[in-house]
Design a protein around this nucleic acid. Structure first.
Lengths: 88, 88
DNA sequence: GATATACTTAGATAGTTGACTAAATATCTA
DNA sequence: TAGATATTTAGTCAACTATCTAAGTATATC
């Protein structure tokens, strides 16, 4: 997924908050939802965007779908940003 | 200016490209414009957003208005992002 | 298999964004 | 001060985004 899409994904505060939650531990959608005043479909939409940009991964565990941070993409992103923010 | 606004400012490829240009050296609007296929008002709009988030500063020099990167905000931002991207 | 639970997909809508044209402002120069 | 140059402001519009409700899919349990 492109750097641009990733930046756009990160530009939304809801999505950043989801990532911060997942930083602590993997969570099912309903558990994530408890932290937001938003319908499940809306949340699902954000999760989908995060998934499209590989910032998170998901896997089914019984009835639940567990979301996890994808740390490798974070590392990749950190590199690109470091380069971008380099001094003149 | 808020972290959120700054992220939104950075989410646009045109604006990121402007910043990359300014990384090399300060530039007037017309000089910046040479790098884009976009009307001046559209470009001015992007410059305004970058200015609102303090990512750039501007100063008049005769008829021209010279834009510069604001490195201090970049450093600030780098810190916040580093923290955000920290491992679990 | 019917029902409950967990989540996603589809479709509609309001708000935001980025582009344009036209008009305004500021500075320089003759 | 009139005209040229550089840029911004204002207003409009199409495209995109985030939200919602309603309906659909997948798994578990009775």
């Amino acid at each position: 997924m492109s750097f641009n899409k990733t930046m756009q994904a990160l530009a939304d505060p809801t999505r950043r908050r989801i990532l911060e939650l997942l930083k602590k531990k993997d969570l099912g959608v309903s558990e994530i939802a408890k932290n937001f005043e938003m319908t499940l479909p809306s949340l699902s939409h954000h999760l989908n965007i995060l998934k499209q940009t590989d910032l998170v991964t998901s896997q089914r565990r019984g009835q639940e779908i567990i979301y996890s941070l994808n740390l490798s993409v974070f590392e990749e992103l950190a590199k690109v940003l470091a380069k971008f923010f380099d001094k003149k």
